[in-house]
């Protein structure tokens, strides 16, 4: 039975970089040979979610949302637009534990394995750590260093904050960083006061956003107070701290691996050898 991977992402009418992570990860997965057929679909770009499944040749399609949290898009928009008879209770999730459900779309004769978003997969914790390594250029970063995991946060969806908190807790449990905090743009504790939350001089700030755009490149740097005419410096000096701001985590190449983990968890025949790049640091710290 042939299998395809369909990465579904938000995309944008205005920001050409919005779809770049989905495209990059799809290319990496294709190049690794993990799936013979890899496609993307978007809410705001093309192919639309509505037209996506008909562009896929395979009979079995693993649909992985490149979204940070469970909520409106994963529970309502994506299943509706893909014409899946999905009920959120099918996932039986507590807000961060959606795995996958097998469904039959109404417009094509295919089997769809609809997976939870990449953002709540356990492997995302590895990506956060990897991101901290990349932005500091230190593969052993952690000792004496604070880590802020930053989310959008919204009062409309409690799961938005849950995903951020979930990974912050998991990183903290590794005892690798001196301090780990979950901070938010639109709810407390806010990223505006980032230095208030840390005693460590060096603070790595990793925003859990899929793509670089207004939020990650302008809002958050401005909120923190590290924005300058050219964007922001890395590190940026702020109130006696060095802020290592990582930009959207979705652009991290290791994200491709989380996409594959989602599909593999749902039963896809993904050869472990074909996976992109299991983080050596993740293996080392035993997670």
């Amino acid at each position: 039975m042939s299998e395809a991977l369909l990465v579904v992402a938000h995309g944008s009418h205005l920001n050409p970089r919005s779809s770049t992570p989905a495209q990059d990860h799809a290319d990496a997965i294709r190049a690794a040979g993990a799936f013979a057929e890899v496609r993307e679909a978007y809410w705001k770009e093309e192919p639309s979610f509505r037209n996506a499944l008909r562009t896929v040749a395979a009979d079995e399609v693993y649909v992985v949302p490149l979204f940070v949290s469970e909520g409106y898009f994963t529970e309502e928009v994506i299943p509706r637009e893909l014409r899946l008879d999905f009920d959120v209770t099918d996932w039986g999730s507590d807000g961060t534990s959606a795995d996958s459900v097998t469904l039959r779309p109404t417009d094509v004769d295919k089997t769809v394995h609809y997976c939870g978003p990449v953002g709540t997969h356990d492997a995302m914790t590895d990506v956060i750590v990897r991101r901290a390594e990349t932005v500091t250029g230190d593969s052993a970063v952690g000792e004496g260093v604070g880590l802020a995991v930053v989310g959008h946060g919204t009062k409309r969806n409690e799961n938005s904050a849950k995903a951020i908190q979930y990974h912050a807790d998991r990183v903290r449990d590794r005892d690798r960083f001196a301090e780990v905090r979950a901070l938010f743009m639109d709810e407390a504790p806010e990223v505006d006061d980032v230095t208030d939350h840390f005693e460590s001089e060096d603070i790595v700030v990793v925003p859990l956003f899929v793509a670089d755009g207004y939020h990650t490149q302008e809002d958050i740097p401005a909120d923190m107070g590290i924005a300058d005419d050219d964007g922001y410096a890395v590190p940026a000096r702020l109130d006696g701290h060095d802020i290592w701001y990582a930009g959207a985590i979705g652009t991290e190449p290791l994200m491709a691996d989380v996409i594959l983990e989602r599909a593999a968890d749902a039963g896809a025949d993904v050869d472990a050898e074909m996976r992109i790049s299991r983080a050596p640091t993740a293996a080392a710290d035993g997670d």
Partner: peptide, 22 residues
Amino acid sequence: DGLYPATVANWHREREGTLDVT
């Protein structure tokens, strides 16, 4: 399909009389 996503699939559906217009 990269230049004009999903156009081939929908063109074919139309030729087959199965284009699902919304």
